Computed example of a mutant assay.
Amino acid sequence: MTANLLTRLARLEATQTAPVALETSFSPALRLLRLLLAVYLGDLRPGEDVAAGEARALGFRTAAVMHAAMVAERTAVIGWGSQHNSAVMRMLTPFGGGSASGMLANHEALTALLTTLPETFADHHDADPNQVSAAAEWVSL
């Protein structure tokens, strides 16, 4: 019965359309921040989707729960954005960055995080050093 149930569940999930939040194309700078969050705060494992580590960094049990929260009710995206901003600040603070630190300090903090990225993730397509300036500007707003 369990195998049959899992097969039916997989078939049902495959027919579902992606939530609106998943259809959003994140900017390269935000993808860099998501990767750094997933690695440094979400304990991202090799071969695992960045969303899984990002979800853990934001306090969600799984990526599916995070995505459900992002599309549930009208205030969910605002709450997710707040959790995301808080997590970014927690990640940057030990490196001298943060919301009140200014763009230069945030640029240096992000550069330090990217430079010390574990080898497993250093070649990840989102680990783009060209996006540090844009990411630093975003977190400095």
Rank of each mutant, 00 (worst) to 15 (best):
M1S: 15
A3W: 12
T7V: 13
R11G: 07
Q16E: 14
P19N: 04
P19V: 04
V20K: 12
L22D: 02
L22F: 00
S27T: 12
A29L: 01
R34D: 08
L36S: 01
L37V: 02
A38R: 04
V39W: 02
Y40D: 09
L44A: 00
E48D: 05
D49G: 12
A52R: 07
E54D: 00
A55S: 00
R56E: 01
L58I: 04
T62G: 04
M66P: 00
M70A: 11
M70Q: 11
A72F: 09
E73A: 14
R74G: 14
R74C: 05
T75H: 06
V77L: 00
V77C: 02
G81N: 09
H84Y: 15
S86I: 09
S86W: 11
M89Q: 15
R90Q: 08
R90Y: 03
R90L: 03
M91I: 07
P94Y: 04
F95D: 13
G96L: 01
G97K: 01
G98L: 03
A100R: 14
L104I: 15
L104P: 09
H107L: 10
H107G: 10
A109G: 05
L110M: 01
L114N: 03
L114M: 08
T116A: 15
L117K: 07
P118M: 00
F121M: 06
H124I: 08
H125W: 02
H125F: 11
D126T: 13
D128M: 10
P129V: 02
P129F: 05
N130Q: 13
N130S: 15
V132W: 06
A134M: 12
A134N: 08
A134D: 14
